[in-house]
């Protein structure tokens, strides 16, 4: 199995960060993104417009460097594009824009939008008889946004087995989650798994374990966010 390091992702990220240590928010998603794009999602640069492609929705649009690096490693964008990201010349911003970047399913940045969009996507695929997988990545602090909870309940009541929410838990929520994040999803009827967000095999197993007629929440635990906010 190729690892994210083998794929040259740190070097790709360095094209965006220079020699500085890159932002923790970006690092936290790196392994999840790599396992998804390398081994789980059925989507390639050739199928970005295929109605039957799997969807990955980056709800937590902050720190998209790992996302751009994975898209570059998988050929959705050219690695050269990373060098001047966030400049006026670039289509790669600090928050991604689906109308500018091939393979980006949603424009995100403001928190709490990805899960409701993902639920609507599942509704739309279901109405067309398309069983493609829909993954949405949220951050643990992002779950503070109430809009997520409208979607969490709805996805469970609608038995959305096509849907997986990946929660990157770097313990950045200011108020936190009594009993843990997975319990909050489980009580609504989601299948859940809490795994080491750096362990590729554990992530792969969590992402590919069947969860018929129930949406799946995978809590990917990574090292706590450092630094001041």
């Amino acid at each position: 199995m190729m690892t994210s390091t083998d794929a040259g992702l740190p070097a790709l990220i360095a094209r965006m960060t220079g020699d500085e240590k890159h932002a923790a928010a970006s690092e936290s998603t790196l392994d999840v993104l790599w396992v998804l794009y390398d081994r789980v999602l059925d989507v390639t640069p050739d199928t970005v417009h295929d109605p039957r492609r799997d969807r990955f929705l980056l709800s937590k649009g902050h720190g998209p460097m790992a996302y751009y690096a994975v898209l570059a490693a998988k050929g959705f964008i050219a690695p050269e594009e990373l060098d001047d990201w966030a400049s006026v010349r670039s289509r790669l911003g600090q928050h991604p824009d689906r109308n500018r970047v091939p393979g980006v399913e949603i424009s995100s940045g403001s928190l709490g939008h990805g899960l409701p969009l993902a639920v609507g996507t599942v509704y739309g695929l279901r109405a067309q008889g398309i069983g493609s997988k829909v993954f949405v990545l949220v951050g643990d602090a992002e779950l503070d946004e109430g809009s997520n909870h409208e979607a969490i309940v709805l996805a469970a009541r609608e038995s959305m087995g096509q849907l997986t929410a990946v929660v990157i838990d770097n313990r950045s929520a200011t108020r936190g989650w009594p009993g843990g994040i997975a319990q909050r999803f489980a009580i609504e009827g989601w299948a859940t798994a809490t795994v080491d967000g750096r362990d590729h095999e554990a992530l792969y197993e969590a992402f590919t374990t069947p969860h018929p007629r129930r949406p799946l929440c995978v809590v990917a635990v990574v090292e706590p966010k450092s630094g001041q906010r």
């Binding site: 939008h113 993902a118 639920v119 609507g120 996507t121 599942v122 739309g124 409208e150």
Partner: peptide, 8 residues
């Protein structure tokens, strides 16, 4: 939000 997802 669901309306947006459906349109997507």
């Amino acid at each position: 939000g669901v309306t947006g997802g459906l349109a997507l």
